[in-house]
């Protein structure tokens, strides 16, 4: 990797009694498109806040373009879309974009930023009159209007409808093609897969996986199986192609990418099972598998 544009070094962040980050190391180089994936409360937003200098690490260090993240020179090369932040409602879309453009040394033309965000019809509307999805597009326009080298997007697609999501995806590909560095957070694996070339999985304040989407997906279980075992010993479940097993009394919960093979093997062993249920694994299951917490006795 060339000189990292974004760097976290052993970052810990404590809010009162809660430790949101428990030692995060991350280096992101020029042109990378990175998705930070994790459930709510995993530490994604805190990580981004520390990268941006919006939060001070309790210990460890954050650098942006090799500078302190709060440095104006670093900020001038950075675009941001934050969750739960507001803009003045009495300005029009174009006025607000022009205001933000003035903060940057070499901004995009206003029309270009408006078009990239798909806000052509709303350029003259007051911000207060925008719908939730349009507001999200406006935040995207504000993030890119300074033509930043690094773009931080915290949960960018929340509140977007299907159409807006598609348009957003296209804009993101254009930005990635133009060698922009993008760091985004999401709690959807599909979204991370569609947008990013590198997925950083965060859970309970630590990075538990950092790999290309294909590798991450291969390690994610695709199915969750539940059933009851009648009278079989612990040996009945050994050596199966599963990523996690949880057994409470006669109830069994398995995570596996190959449920058919698991069933075939169980029947071959003559295990009697009932109340079988097979469902698509959700992200929670995936995290259980990745952290292997499920295999530990609880």
């Amino acid at each position: 990797m060339s000189t990292p544009l974004v760097e976290l070094e052993g970052v810990r962040k404590r809010y009162g009694a809660v430790e949101a980050l428990r030692g995060v190391d991350l280096r992101i180089g020029r042109g990378e498109v990175v998705a930070m994936l994790g459930p709510n409360g995993a530490g994604k937003t805190t990580s981004i806040s520390v990268m941006l200098g919006l939060r001070r690490p309790t210990s460890g260090r954050a650098r942006l373009f090799g500078l302190d993240p709060g440095d104006r020179r670093a900020r001038s090369r950075t675009g941001v879309m934050l969750q739960e932040s507001g803009v003045p409602g009495t300005l029009t879309v174009r006025e607000l974009i022009d205001l933000f453009r003035a903060y940057y040394p070499r901004p995009l033309p206003a029309g270009r930023a408006i078009a990239l965000a798909g806000l052509e019809d709303k350029a003259g509307a007051r911000v207060a009159q925008l719908s939730g999805g349009q507001r999200q597009r406006l935040y995207f326009a504000l993030a890119i209007c300074g033509d930043p080298e690094v773009l931080f997007l915290d949960e960018p697609t929340v509140g977007m409808d299907v159409e807006a999501r598609q348009a957003f995806l296209v804009s993101m590909r254009e930005l990635a093609a133009a060698e922009r560095t993008i760091v985004l957070t999401t709690h959807y694996l599909e979204e991370a897969d569609a947008l990013a070339r590198r997925i950083v999985v965060v859970d309970h304040g630590v990075v538990i996986a950092d790999a290309p989407p294909a590798d991450i997906k291969a390690r994610m279980p695709s199915k969750r199986m539940r059933f009851r075992l009648s009278g079989a010993g612990a040996a009945a479940l050994e050596g199966l192609p599963v990523t996690a097993v949880e057994r409470t009394g006669d109830r069994v919960r398995l995570l596996s990418a190959e449920p058919e093979t698991v069933l075939r093997e169980l029947f071959r062993r003559g295990v009697a099972l009932s109340d079988l249920e097979v469902a698509g694994a959700d992200l929670e299951d995936a995290f259980l598998a990745l952290t292997a917490r499920a295999s530990e006795p609880s």
Partner: peptide, 13 residues
């Protein structure tokens, strides 16, 4: 309205 949060992340001194 948390306008201050977004403003703080921009290069606006």
């Amino acid at each position: 309205q948390r306008i201050d949060v977004l403003m703080r992340a921009t290069p606006l001194p």
